[in-house]
Write a protein that binds this DNA or RNA. Structure first.
Length: 864
RNA sequence: GCGGGCGUGGCGGAACGGUAGACGCAACGGACUUAAAAUCCGUUGGGAGAAAUCCCGUGGGGGUUCGAGUCCCUCCGCCCGCACCA
């Protein structure tokens, strides 16, 4: 008897239609059920989905379908992070309008996502470039303004000369723009900032509560926030002649215990003092320019020598009357951190030491290992930094001599505070979030600049401020600024002529609250309180680790800002976060060095050649799929050829979800074969099996039942913990057991019932992962009600538990035998049995038994 | 430089401190077939042996333990994040 092969091309669209027509995945608030909100990071509509999307959305879909089957009221929405520069680049390069480019891409990608058979609630689809979405963003911004969460300030910003826009600190990687890769320049601009630093402590402290986030991500955020405990204090300044100046120099340090080792002060070239001096000192001005030109990229920092320019000023040591520290403007002091000024202690800071050696400044050690003679303790080329566990004492430090570092800190802090020249202070590395972008394709910032009234928020009744469609991209700069009329408005307050803000929001603003909008995508308010109270927080958020800082930190801040402005009632938006690994693939290169697509690479006589030209290819490293290396496989082609279930199954098999997965042809074939195998097994089970309650079975029939219930038990636990690869291994095992039963001769009624039961369980268990095939199989098994409406089965505890166990028998820690015994047998009985074994006697080789360790139902170890 | 993670067969990977290598891929042998594909059955960490069985084995070295892939110390290698942060 033959069974036709399973044909996904017929089955998949059919079931997708069924789910859509029956609105299976449209979520409604229902207080009678526990809710579960599963969300994958929404895509940028670049035009086509890539394998990273397939992996991300498959995982989310398995969770959504599994939770739904388990009785949860599941919210699983999808939307588009639709503002951003690729749309403008397309406009510049190809003359298409960013809007039509974006919406065409969305249409194409929506179709691709639908072909994956995802259990998404498409009725909640949101698009960030839709005024229906961004009007709420504008409304909230106005509320943020009123709540003092926004600041407009002129500051030195990171300017990307290629994208012609400002970048946030988080968007500068190794001194280069995160998108363009261009070396970032410093520019002075008036910008809008969201005051994320108001929440530094809060964002840091709350990380401890996020116990269902990866430790790695929490650590990265902790480091990014960069809390340090130190002191801010000031020096009296004097000039060359020793005349005291009216102003003091404030510095920040975490090592105030080393004050007696100070030999100079250094200020940033952007420090007010340096700027002022530069006005009448051309040499200093030249030095400032030189430093500014160097940039902040990794290479330049590595190579750059520590350089300083003496200002002719001296800082008086607070505890030693005669000591005067020369003040330099230095290239290694950052204006953005602390006070933009430091005191240098060369003995205990490598950077300060390099500087001191160059300018022949004193190097006085003030901390030394305990017991070392203070007079002979000298510093060579390396600063002395205490390591953890080192016992150290202060030396050469007057009243601090002999104290430990913490005690010295305490003493200095006490004295400085008494002298009223400084105080202990907590400092953060985190900077405020600059959100202004000089671009067209973003959400307009809803403010108006009026010459007489200053900054005036757009009245809420005038929202949304929509983007004009008639813009041109023929000259550099911001099209909104070039637009003939758009920016010219009347001041809402005085009615006089005014100018509309032409900057738009950083697109990370759009993605900082979309998770909340999904709760009530059509609400007239940004977020409907009742809906958010029901759905929030997101129970499982899935995406790439590349968003560990940017998006996830901004979202955590945004939820707090929305809370302050009464738009949301929750501070942590994502209760549990999962960061999935990348999809990687081999790279192929032709002799001329061109990258070759995997579809064009074929193996011939053990060598890789180009499928069309026959040209030999070299196989390169296995790397993240990327357009530049062309090592991409198009999901659409895979779905076309094998169906969505094959792609989904492959994505979940073998590799744990947090690790990088290598896409291989062999792996896809393997997934395809399994799908056909399951289809065959189910069809055979329909013929050979017998429906009915498989009660009272024994022997082989009972063993098959046990295998089924055990597999179900394991898969349930594994899916709960996102261990997809393990659950697939379990499903394979049950498939093997069912296959063996079908090969065997036993066709007793109990066996026929067990076969049927095993087949049904196999189908239900694999349904979250390959939903289309499961529906087909389920119908084949005679069920009128689809899998999508079928509850997750419950394993029978009696069948999961074993009444017999295999106990390993060890002698001196080495396995020598195993015995199969009734479960729960007492220690003495196990010991007596084991000691009678030939293998044990042989291994003991006549030695007397000294000790016996019995771990019930697991192992016995005989020590001889 | 600072911080973190990871090293297990030919490969992806399993393994509450308790039988290392589940499951899959690849490879090899066999069945079916005129043949191939598909499918099914079997073998597959290394070494010795006809076999029973024994020895070795989770990056290297050391330690704790009746027992270590798992815990501790140390070295080596790879990967990731941050980086002139005072």
């Amino acid at each position: 008897m033959t069974t036709e092969r399973y044909n996904p091309r017929d089955a998949e669209p059919r079931w997708q239609r069924y789910w859509t027509e029956n609105r299976c995945f449209e979520a409604r608030e229902d207080l009678s059920k526990p809710k579960y909100y599963v969300l994958e990071m929404f895509p940028y509509p670049s035009g086509r989905i890539h394998m990273g999307h397939v992996r991300n959305y498959t995982m989310g879909d398995v969770i959504a379908r599994f939770r739904r089957a388990c009785g949860y009221n599941v919210l699983h929405p999808m939307g588009w992070d639709a503002f951003g520069m690729p749309a403008e680049n397309a406009a510049i390069e190809r003359g298409v309008h960013p809007k039509s480019w974006t919406y065409d891409n969305i249409a194409a990608m929506r179709g691709q996502l639908k072909s994956m058979g995802l259990a998404l609630d498409w009725s909640r689809e949101i698009t960030t470039c839709d005024p229906a979405y961004y009007r709420h963003e504008q409304e909230m911004f106005i509320d943020f303004l009123a709540a003092d969460l926004v600041e407009r300030k002129v500051s030195t910003v990171n300017w990307d000369p290629v994208d012609n826009t400002v970048l946030a600190n988080e968007q500068v990687i190794d001194g280069r723009g995160w998108r363009s890769g261009a070396l970032v320049e410093n520019r002075e601009l008036a910008q809008w900032f969201l005051k994320i630093t108001d929440y530094s402590e809060e964002l840091l402290a709350a990380l401890d509560r996020l116990d269902r986030w990866p430790e790695k991500v929490r650590l990265m955020q902790r480091n990014w926030i960069g809390r340090s405990e130190g002191m801010r204090f000031s020096f009296a300044l004097e000039d060359e002649a020793g005349r005291i100046l009216g102003e003091r120099l404030a510095v920040y340090t975490t090592r105030y215990d080393t004050i007696f080792g100070a030999s100079f002060c250094a200020i940033s070239t952007d420090h007010e003092l340096a700027k002022r001096q530069a006005e009448r000192n051309p040499a200093l001005d030249a030095f400032r320019r030189e430093v500014a030109a160097l940039g902040t990229s990794e290479e330049t920092i590595e190579r750059a020598e520590k350089k300083g320019y003496p200002l002719g000023l001296y800082a008086r040591h607070p505890f030693r009357e005669k000591v005067r520290l020369p003040v330099y403007a230095a290239n290694f002091v950052l204006m953005g951190y602390g006070e933009g000024a430091i005191f240098g202690c060369p003995a205990h800071d490598q950077r300060d030491l390099d500087f001191a050696r160059k300018y022949r400044l004193q190097v006085v050690p003030v901390v030394a290992p305990k017991g070392v003679d203070a007079a002979s303790f000298a510093i060579g080329d390396e600063a002395y930094l205490e390591k953890e566990g080192d016992e150290t004492v202060l030396i050469n430090s007057d009243f601090l001599d002999g104290l430990s570092v913490p005690a010295a800190k305490e003493e200095i802090a006490r004295r400085m505070e008494a002298m009223k020249i400084g105080e202990r202070r907590v400092n953060y590395r985190l900077r405020d979030w600059g959100v202004s972008r000089q671009r067209y394709w973003g959400c307009p910032i809803p403010v108006i600049h009026c010459t007489s009234c200053g900054i005036v928020p757009v009245p809420k009744k005038d929202l949304p401020v929509t983007l004009p469609d008639d813009v041109t991209f023929d000259k550099p700069g911001n099209p909104l600024d070039h637009h003939p009329i758009w920016k010219h408005v009347k001041c809402p307050t005085c009615g006089g002529p005014a100018r509309r803000e032409t900057d738009t929001f950083d697109t990370f603003v759009d993605s900082s609250w979309y998770y909340a909008r999904f709760c009530s995508p059509a609400s007239a308010r940004p977020v409907d309180a009742a809906a958010a109270a029901y759905w929030m927080p997101v129970d499982k958020y899935i995406g790439g680790v590349e968003h560990a800082i940017l998006h996830l930190l901004y979202s955590r801040f945004y939820a707090r800002a929305m809370m302050r402005t009464h738009h949301l009632d929750i501070d942590e938006p994502f209760a549990s976060l999962f960061t999935q690994g990348m999809v990687v693939h081999e790279t192929f290169q032709s002799a001329s060095g061109e990258w070759v697509l995997p579809v064009d690479a074929v193996q011939k006589d053990g060598h890789w050649v180009h499928a069309k030209t026959g040209e030999p290819l070299t196989v390169g490293g296995i790397e993240k799929m990327s357009k530049s290396k062309r090592n991409v496989v198009d999901p659409e082609a895979i779905i076309e050829r094998y169906g969505a279930d094959t792609a989904r199954w492959f994505m979940l098999s073998d590799t744990p979800p947090e690790r990088d997965i290598e896409w291989t042809e062999a792996g896809v074939d393997g997934a395809w074969r399994f799908i056909q195998r399951l289809w065959r097994l189910v069809n055979e089970a329909v013929r050979e099996g017998s429906p009915g309650e498989p009660a009272g079975v024994a022997g082989a029939a009972l063993e098959l039942r046990r295998a089924a219930h055990r597999a179900l038990d394991a898969v349930t636990g594994d899916l709960m913990n996102l261990r997809f690869n393990r659950s697939i291994a379990r499903i394979n095992e049950l498939g093997n057991a069912l296959s063996a039963a079908l090969q065997a001769a036993d066709r007793s009624e109990p066996m026929r019932r067990s076969i049927r039961e095993a087949a049904e369980m196999l189908v239900l268990m694999s349904a979250p992962m390959m939903p289309h095939l499961a529906e087909e199989c389920w119908r084949q098994l005679g069920h009128a009600k689809p899998v999508v409406d079928t509850a997750w089965p419950k394993p029978d505890a009696a069948l999961v538990a074993d009444d017999c166990v295999t106990i390993a028998v060890q002698v001196n820690g080495k396995r020598r035998d195993e015995v199969r015994l009734a479960k729960g047998l007492g220690k003495e009985a196990v010991e007596a049995l084991a000691l009678k074994l030939d293998s044990v006697a042989r291994a003991l080789d006549g030695r007397p038994v000294r000790k016996v360790i019995v771990v019930p139902d697991r192992i016995i170890n005989i020590v001889g």
